[in-house]
């Protein structure tokens, strides 16, 4: 998902067109990672509230997703499936079967969680009207993503400025009206449902074709061409030794990551290495407001109910 943001930033600047199959698969994996991220947010968040069982259910979903991505690119968590210009390779042959299993099994686990949690009095009382963030505050603090939508800000990059072909899929953007921890939970759950909807649509009309662009600026030519064709060989050498040469300039590109707007501000000096890349992490903006909204609550309040349901990721803060 973060790969998508960076690849998108480079592609947008260089004007590389992505083949439709790669686009669709990108959307598929992007939405899958959104689900996986929300699982990791909600699971331990609910554990902090004392609801341990949900972690098992949500991690069932995660393991299913891990299997898919491990098949496609070989690693589970720090994946690197996307390249500038497409994907590393096409999906393996058992992708359809596994993807169908994922789409079939995840809603079951999700339903289990919802049935355990949503009418649970302890949960509702511990999250209702806790950590309320008004619409104005959320905007001033720079909230984006599910936390902003829970406060009623209708902002989703996938709708506002579609990328990777999001305009072709039907999905709703859930909004909260109170901006408390309960709303944040509900928004996340609903987003998972919507993501499943998008994934189903992708799978139903997945176009055939290449999984990466044949633009010589960005993509390494296939192996047999490297052996037979001197131009392809030189291109291969150039790309490996120098990297992708990005034209000079500076630009800002953004996508909707699981927590909000993930922006990349890049300055390029025309060489194969970026001169400066500044990542705009969604959590950084959200985390700084905890100090203010935690005032007047009990410690388990800010810690369990709010921090986790806001989904603060340490890796994004500690850069």
């Amino acid at each position: 998902m973060n790969n998508l943001g960076y690849c998108h930033a480079i592609e947008e600047w260089m004007g590389i067109d992505i083949p439709p199959r790669a686009q669709a698969l990108r959307v598929f994996f992007n939405e899958m990672h959104r689900i996986l991220d929300h699982c990791v947010c909600l699971g331990p968040g609910l554990v902090d509230l004392g609801a341990l069982t949900n972690l098992w259910y949500l991690f069932n979903i995660r393991e299913l997703g891990y299997e898919l991505i491990e098949n496609a690119c070989g690693s589970r968590l720090t994946t690197s499936y996307l390249r500038v210009g497409g994907l590393t390779r096409d999906v393996p042959s058992d992708f359809y079967k596994k993807a169908k299993t994922f789409l079939k099994e995840s809603p079951k686990n999700l339903t289990d969680v919802r049935r355990l949690i949503e009418r649970n009095r302890i949960f509702v009382e511990r999250t209702r009207d806790i950590g309320v963030v008004s619409k104005e505050d959320a905007m001033a603090w720079g909230y984006t993503g599910p936390c902003a939508r829970a406060s009623g800000i209708n902002y989703d990059v996938r709708k506002v400025r579609p990328y990777s072909g999001y305009e072709n899929y039907e999905f709703d953007v859930p909004l909260g009206d109170r901006g408390d921890a309960h709303d944040r939970y509900m928004v996340r759950i609903e987003e998972m449902v919507q993501s499943l909807r998008i994934m189903q649509q992708v799978l139903d009309n997945l176009p055939e074709g290449a999984a990466s662009t044949d633009d010589p600026r960005a993509f390494i030519p296939p192996k047999h061409e490297t052996y037979d064709n001197i131009e392809a060989l030189m291109n291969h050498f150039k790309l490996i030794y120098e990297g992708i040469r990005v034209p000079k300039g500076d630009w800002y590109s953004f996508t909707e990551a699981a927590n909000g707007e993930l922006g990349f501000y890049c300055v390029s000096d025309g060489s194969g290495n970026p001169y400066r890349v500044k990542v705009r992490p969604p959590c950084f903006a959200i985390c700084q407001s905890i100090e203010k909204i935690a005032v007047g609550h009990m410690i388990p309040g800010p810690d369990g109910d709010r921090r986790k349901l806001m989904n603060i990721i340490a890796g994004e803060l500690d850069r």
Binding site: L55, Y57, F59, R62, E63, L77, T78, A314, G315
Partner: peptide, 17 residues
């Protein structure tokens, strides 16, 4: 003492699979 992405796999290690 989970500080980064390994912490996520640490949760997976505690969890159901």
């Amino acid at each position: 003492f989970g500080t980064a992405c390994c912490g996520i796999e640490l949760m997976a290690y505690m969890a159901s699979y």
